[in-house]
Amino acid sequence: MITALAEQDELALAPGFLEAIGRGVGAILLYALVGLALMIIGFYAIDVTTPGRLGHLVREGAPNAVVVTALGLVSMALIVVVAIYSTSDRLLEGLLTSVIFGLVGIAVQVLAVRLLERIIGIDIGLVLQADRFSPVSLIVGAGHFALGLVVAVAVS
């Protein structure tokens, strides 16, 4: 009899289990939407501030445009991840932190990378439109990634 009760307890769900799962799934969906929205905004911010149509270049497989875009998106994801992690037990605060720091991060990245390009003397329009890989695209991509790290650490 005691063994049967013990087995039933092992199969029973803890009180509040389903509620916790529901909250967790809801949080995942909300953070995913915020992250996706920020990455789309970040993509368009890079697109608007660089010569040429970045989306078209990426779809056409221009290697330098792909490198810069990919590293820009990874840097945005870093900011969102750290914002989520630093406020993981407070959903609304985490979402707001992600949005606010994400938008600030986008602005900082775009401005700083454009400044870096000017200081180094990179014609980013020519680099992005080139049919062949240019190591210069790694400098621009690294600038996006590095600034994403800086903003992410500032969030934490």
Rank of each mutant, 00 (worst) to 15 (best):
A14C: 01
A14W: 05
G16F: 06
F17S: 06
L18M: 00
E19R: 04
A20Y: 03
I21K: 02
G22L: 00
G22E: 00
R23L: 10
V25E: 00
V25L: 00
I28T: 08
I28V: 10
L30E: 04
L30K: 02
L30R: 04
A32P: 01
A32S: 10
A32K: 11
L33H: 02
V34W: 05
L38S: 02
M39F: 06
I40V: 11
I40C: 04
G42Y: 06
F43A: 15
F43K: 13
I46F: 13
D47T: 09
V48C: 10
T50P: 03
T50A: 01
P51V: 12
P51T: 13
G52T: 03
L54S: 06
H56P: 05
H56S: 08
H56D: 08
L57N: 02
L57V: 00
V58E: 06
R59M: 11
E60L: 10
E60T: 08
G61D: 03
A62V: 04
P63W: 04
P63T: 08
A65K: 11
V66M: 13
V67C: 11
V67I: 14
V67A: 12
V68Y: 07
V68K: 01
L71C: 12
G72F: 07
L73T: 06
L73G: 06
S75D: 12
M76N: 09
M76A: 15
A77K: 13
A77I: 10
L78P: 03
L78T: 10
L78G: 01
V81T: 09
V81H: 13
V82A: 12
V82L: 08
A83N: 09
A83E: 11
I84E: 11
Y85L: 13
Y85P: 09
T87D: 07
T87E: 08
T87V: 14
S88Y: 15
S88H: 15
D89S: 12
R90Y: 15
R90N: 15
E93S: 13
E93N: 13
G94K: 15
L95G: 01
L96R: 04
T97A: 14
V99N: 14
V99L: 14
V99M: 15
I100S: 11
F101D: 05
F101C: 03
V104A: 10
I106V: 12
Q109V: 15
Q109S: 14
V110Y: 14
V110L: 12
L111H: 09
V113E: 04
L115H: 02
L115A: 02
E117P: 02
E117F: 10
E117N: 07
R118Q: 02
I120R: 00
G121F: 05
G121P: 06
I122N: 02
I124M: 06
G125Y: 09
G125Q: 07
G125N: 08
L126C: 06
V127D: 07
V127L: 03
V127Y: 09
Q129C: 00
A130T: 01
D131G: 02
P135T: 13
V136S: 01
V136Y: 04
V136W: 01
